[in-house]
């Protein structure tokens, strides 16, 4: 097995498998100090597998909207300095809190990203990551970017075409959502997440 570093510091490639360094937390496969990161279980892993130029850096503070049970959060926490993880649904937030108790740099927040009421808790962040399958997800990303994202900070929005409009072609949906994001953010690139995720795309943008 060959181990090489990914362009994103903190991410490693074990042969063709993506991994981060840390304790196993949710039953993922482990090789020594490396935890494998399955691109079929995490959209961020799918993105990193397809594209190495993702503006994630070790010193960054991340605001993560739609943390769910924290699978992706746990790997992201191995890469960056601090993650504010927002999740609204109590059932999965329960798993997220349990995970946060084992990760020193995750702050769990049970809140609705649509109406951000965590303004008195979350500081300015360098990176906004959003994975919430909602029809108005672009608006939610913009609202949160305006409140929490540093000037020059990055946003990564995972678009699930099927949650926005099932009747339209996924490519048409991406285009529409990108247009909405463009009103407030500078779009850097758009990556489809095939074959790991069907009808999903990652948009990376920057707040000027």
């Amino acid at each position: 097995m060959t181990i090489r570093t990914h362009k994103v510091a903190g991410v490693f490639m074990l042969d063709s498998h993506l991994a981060t360094k840390g304790d196993a937390l949710y039953g993922e496969k482990v090789f020594g100090e490396y935890r494998l990161w399955n691109p079929q279980r995490s959209k961020l892993a799918a993105l990193l597998k397809k594209e190495e130029n993702v503006p994630l850096r070790p010193e960054q503070i991340v605001l993560y909207l739609g943390a769910a049970s924290g699978t992706t959060v746990s790997h992201l926490a191995n890469i960056v300095s601090l993650v504010y993880a927002v999740e609204f649904a109590p059932r999965v937030a329960r798993d997220l809190v349990r995970l946060s108790e084992r990760l020193k740099n995750v702050v769990p927040l049970v809140a609705d990203a649509v109406r951000p009421d965590y303004g008195h808790i979350v500081e300015l962040v360098d990176f906004l990551y959003q994975d919430i399958a909602q029809p108005n997800q672009a608006e939610i990303a913009i609202t949160n970017a305006e409140i929490f994202l540093k000037t020059g900070g990055y946003a990564c929005v995972m678009i699930k075409a099927r949650s926005i409009d099932v009747t339209a072609k996924p490519k048409a949906v991406y285009k529409r959502e990108v247009k909405k994001l463009k009103e407030q953010l500078d779009i850097m690139c758009v990556h489809e997440l095939e074959p790991f995720y069907k009808a999903h795309a990652a948009v990376i943008a920057r707040l000027a």
Binding site: L82, P90, A93, S100, K104, N105, V107, P108, L109
Partner: peptide
Amino acid sequence: ISLLRAVAIQRAKEQI
């Protein structure tokens, strides 16, 4: 960070 994290975990548990 460690204080904020402890407070956030406590609050999240209560909300859940």
